[in-house]
């Protein structure tokens, strides 16, 4: 086998394995955040701080889904900003309206 082809193949398999691991880590993180926030709610935190915690976790989860799962991390910035801008805008507006 041509040496350069085999290196490239090796490299791509490597990236692929790396992407697999990454996706799995994100999944763990998403699951953990969900369970964590749920448990906090279970133990009866219901102050303003809890609202902030919940929405912050949504922000983080949304960020990961957009960047990693939707794959916008590798896409031209304008598209990524458009979707993440939507996420930030909606959550910030919800916080502001909640505080009013």
């Amino acid at each position: 086998m041509d040496h350069s082809v085999s290196t490239r193949l090796h490299h791509s398999v490597n990236t692929w394995a790396h992407q697999q691991t990454r996706a799995k880590r994100i999944w763990f993180a998403l699951m953990f955040l969900t369970v964590f926030v749920y448990t906090c709610g279970r133990f009866g935190f219901s102050s303003q701080w809890f609202v902030i915690l919940v929405l912050a976790s949504s922000l983080l989860k949304g960020y990961w889904i957009i960047a990693e799962y939707m794959g916008l991390r590798q896409v031209a910035r304008k598209w990524r900003w458009l979707v993440q801008g939507w996420l930030v805008l909606v959550i910030v507006l919800i916080v502001i309206i909640h505080q009013l």
Partner: peptide, 9 residues
Amino acid sequence: DTERTKPLP
């Protein structure tokens, strides 16, 4: 994978 050149998936 930091390059940001791909089209939307």
